[in-house]
Amino acid sequence: MKWLALIAVIATGSLLIYAVSDFPDWGSASSPANGGVEGAGRSVSQTFIEETDTLTHVPNIVTAVLADYRGYDTMFETVVILAAGMAIFAILRVLRDTEKPVDQSKHDPSIDGDHQRIIIGTTCRLLIPVIQLFALYVVAHGHHSPGGGFQGGVILGASFILLGLATDLETAIARFSEKQFIGLACVGIFIYAGFGVLGQFYGRGFLDYGALQPIFMTDGEPMARSHAMLGVEVGVAFTVTAIMFAIYANLASKGELKNGL
């Protein structure tokens, strides 16, 4: 069995190595992906780099492509995240109380309730606000500097996971309850799709952010696209934050959302 696997792996590998010699050189600006095919005009990425600033006023081309040019893709990407969260909920979550209730007298849902955790508690108290502030910066500046909704959302979710790891899951759940994170995940998608539908009220296509110019009261459609992208990224960040924490909370407590690791 093992040598059969070895043969399969080596066969796949050697086929790919055989194809490697036809690929463009490392760092080549004239490869089909970077420079377009001869006689077929510019490649799509060249158009993105050259036109993004004119059409959207968003310096971060990656964000512009993600949230505007490929808006549908990113919207359903967010739905995939939500679906993963729902799948984990369906697989793991135990809704009935199977075990005896935890001794409430010992449990204190404050960060430094336990004297043995005073170092961890103090560190969390200092570190978590900074992490969350940085996450908000990454989301809010996602269209000007490296960052965006997914990245900022993951950092924000990680701050809650840090709280859950450093103390216990109940402490984290007390600050970000199950009702809240499921709600927040849905609100994120709602914000994203809402920006799409809003454009339709002005008689334009779904996710056509240029149509939102009367709402944002900007001069010209490019600035409206830039603002709408920020709104959409905030929606993405909500969903990602909530689902990251939901995945951790369910996995760490075997679906009971109690005690945790």
């Binding site: 992906a33 799509v44 492509v65 990407e77």
Partner: peptide
């Protein structure tokens, strides 16, 4: 206008951002 050869290709970055997210899911 920005010159295309001065900036690395943004499209693979976008595609891989989505791939990472699907990977996490």
């Amino acid at each position: 206008k920005p010159v295309a050869d001065d900036y690395s290709n943004p499209l693979p970055h976008v595609l891989m951002l989505t791939a990472i997210v699907v990977g996490v899911a």
